[in-house]
Each structure stands twice: as structure tokens, then as C-alpha cells.
């Protein structure tokens, strides 16, 4: 045998043993893992749905399903004294809503699922906030305002919705999540929620809404993601 001096003695290796179970274990693990790219998600959806009651008591994973995506060096901070939501662009009446004023607008609450384009989902998130129609009642969009430009305090994050999408019944500007003020990592104090579209349309740390004539490409859309990010019907799914 072609053994280097450094190598330990090989004894007890049973080449005569007919079954190479070790090789089988290795190949089966690789094959199972690779094929799970296809079956993993549907199987996990069923398993996690079936085990949801247990998960509520003892969470399976320490993240409660969320993961926090940011595109800049640090997360924006929120100061209720200075924070404003600017509503401008093609409107009759520009608004600068402070936090108290925003919370004084008609309250809406909904429970909806949150889907990320990378394949994870958080079910039954309880959002409280305001409908865009109630914001527009004060701002009065002009007739040719067909889209919204949503700007995040996390520079350079920006995204767009058409007016029709923004007025879907379950779209809101949320300032509470699961009964508590929106946490910093979820976009405090205000984020857009549009459950029928993937997470990257749900702009966090919302700082201004500008009414525009036409939707353009937002941050991720400039990197190849779909503008109309319908869950299950876009981005290659």
C-alpha cells in the first residue's frame, strides 16, 4: 500500500463486508436533502399546520418564524416627538402626520398571513393600523394619481403600489403588531401591510407616501423581483 509515514495504521477495515451502508447513508442524505428543495415546503406546511397547537405552547424555533431583512447598515430609530409621515406628491392637501395624529385616525385590525418571497411564512399575524382610504380622505389624491411611492426611513429602500392595489380591503398602514406597538425590527413605528403580496412590498419604517402618476421599480424590483408580487403567482412561483 502507498502509505505515507504520517498516516495511522489501517487495520480492521473490512473491505470484504458486502454492504456499504456508510456509502448508502451518505448518498441517501445528500439525495434526500436535494430533493427536499421540491417536497420540503409542502411537507413542512402540512406538518407545521398539524402541530400548530403545540407550537403555540412551545415554539419550535426561537424566531417565531420571522427573519429580519434589512438593506442598509443600521435600522432606523423612532422618536415619537419628531417622527412624521409625509403624504405628498399628486394630492390636493399635503399632510405631515405625527404619531398621535396617525393613531387618531379610524383604527382597523386584521389577522393575516405574512409570506416572504424566500420561502418562509408567518401565519395569523394580528395587525392594527389605518386604511389608506382614511389617510387619503385628508390628503385628497388628484385624479391622475394612479400609484403610490412608499419611502422607507431605511435608505435607499423604496417601493410602489398601484392605487388599486393600495385600496384592496386588507391593505393597511400598521402601527401595532400582535397587540403591541410595532417593534423596531418590524419597521417601527409604521409599515405597510399587503398580505396578498410578498414581504418586500410591505415597506418597513415608512416615512413618506407620495402619490404619483405611475408605479415604477422599487428597491428589490431593480434587482429583478416582480413589481406585482402576488403570493404564489409571481417571482417564478
Amino acid at each position: 500500500m502507498n502509505r505515507s509515514d504520517d498516516f495511522p495504521e489501517e487495520r480492521g477495515v473490512s473491505e470484504s463486508e458486502p454492504k456499504r451502508y456508510g456509502r448508502g447513508l451518505f448518498l441517501a442524505t445528500v439525495a434526500g436533502g436535494l430533493s427536499s428543495l421540491v417536497w420540503g415546503r409542502p411537507v413542512w406546511s402540512r406538518v407545521s399546520a398539524a402541530l400548530a397547537p403545540i407550537d403555540q405552547l412551545v415554539p419550535f424555533v426561537p424566531t417565531s418564524g420571522w427573519r429580519i431583512y434589512t438593506v442598509s447598515g443600521s435600522m432606523p430609530t423612532f422618536d415619537a416627538a419628531t417622527w412624521r409621515l409625509h403624504v405628498g406628491g399628486l394630492v390636493e392637501n399635503e399632510l405631515d402626520l405625527d404619531y398621535e395624529h396617525l393613531r387618531g385616525l379610524p383604527r382597523a385590525t386584521q389577522v393575516s398571513d405574512f409570506h416572504c418571497v424566500t420561502g418562509w411564512t408567518v401565519r395569523n399575524v394580528r395587525w392594527t393600523g389605518v386604511r389608506l382610504a382614511d389617510v387619503f380622505a385628508g390628503a385628497r389624491p388628484k385624479a391622475h394619481a394612479h400609484a403610490l411611492q412608499l419611502t422607507s426611513a431605511e435608505i435607499p429602500y423604496v417601493d410602489y403600489l398601484t392605487m388599486k392595489q393600495a385600496l384592496l380591503p386588507d391593505v393597511m398602514l400598521a402601527y401595532e403588531m400582535n397587540g403591541r406597538p410595532l417593534p423596531r425590527e418590524h419597521g417601527a413605528p409604521l409599515r405597510l401591510v399587503i398580505p396578498e403580496m410578498y414581504g418586500y412590498k410591505n415597506v418597513k419604517w415608512l416615512s413618506r407616501i407620495d402619490l404619483v402618476a405611475k408605479a415604477r421599480a422599487g428597491y428589490w424590483e431593480n434587482l429583478g423581483y416582480d413589481r406585482d408580487a402576488w403570493v404564489g403567482r409571481s417571482n417564478g412561483y
Binding site: V117, T118, G224, G236
Partner: peptide, 21 residues
């Protein structure tokens, strides 16, 4: 995951689950 962020052809619903698992 890296390619999928750049091109939809590399995007599979199970990738994140596999990496986490």
C-alpha cells in the same frame, strides 16, 4: 439562496427550509 436573490430560475420554495434544517 445567493443565486436566487439574483435570478428567479434559481429560486425554490424549499431552499430556506433546507438551509435552516
Amino acid at each position: 439562496l445567493w443565486l436566487g436573490e439574483r435570478d428567479t430560475r434559481f429560486r425554490f420554495a424549499g431552499t430556506v427550509l433546507l438551509h435552516d434544517g
